[in-house]
């Protein structure tokens, strides 16, 4: 288990050195997106149209925050279950998406696509939403404002804590971690 502080967006050589189980603190820019935004992006890809954001090298965070109080950058903002995005994810990875942050298991198709496209799947701590919101210093809607909390936001993050679950080499912390501590 290594510990890194990384700049986002990500580059190929950075992604390649990450291994399942590494603890990572992210600085820089990430995008948000959950069910509704993914569906819209996927439809544009199928129609061969341009996306409202260039995904090359970018990270998408699966989140639907609680409303911000006046003066707050963002409300509580923990990860949502990633599996609901599985049907759309391989198409986004093929377009150059490098990272995803969420919680919970991914489908085999997503795992294969992560390996093929040299990408990475991070887990953020589900339910640590107040703590995570403190690591988000700027938030701005960049697409689909009509979706409210489900719109695509561009977030600037500082010291955003995530853990590598699926690395570009096929490592899978959900199965490795369990095996290691089973029966203890």
């Amino acid at each position: 288990m290594a510990e890194y502080t990384l700049a986002a967006p990500l580059t190929d050589d950075v992604v390649e050195k990450l291994r399942a189980g590494d603890l990572v603190f992210l600085n820089g820019i990430i995008y948000t997106g959950r069910d509704a935004a993914h569906k819209k992006l996927f439809e544009l890809i199928q129609e061969g149209k341009e996306l409202p954001v260039d995904l090359k090298g970018q990270i998408i965070y699966y989140v639907g925050p609680s409303p911000a109080r006046p003066g707050q950058v963002i409300g509580s903002a923990g990860p949502t279950t990633s599996g609901r995005m599985d049907a759309y994810t391989p198409a986004l990875l093929d377009l150059g998406l490098k990272g995803m942050i969420g919680k919970g298991l991914r489908s085999q198709e997503v795992l294969d696509s992560i390996k093929k496209n040299k990408a990475v799947y991070f887990a953020a701590t589900g339910g640590a939403a107040a703590l995570i919101s403190k690591r988000i210093v700027k938030s701005e809607v960049v697409a689909y404002p009509e979706l409210g909390p489900e719109a695509i936001y561009c977030l600037e993050v500082e010291g955003f804590p995530v853990i590598v679950v699926n690395d570009a080499h096929g490592g899978d912390l959900y199965s490795m971690g369990r095996k290691q501590y089973q029966g203890e």
Partner: peptide, 25 residues
């Protein structure tokens, strides 16, 4: 990693309480 997550949860509860923020979104 488990310890680091439990530490996050303890810290999270503290931030939520102090700032009257929902502990989970």
């Amino acid at each position: 990693l488990g310890i680091s997550i439990l530490d996050q949860l303890i810290e999270n509860a503290k931030i939520a309480r102090e700032e009257r923020m929902p502990m989970c979104q």
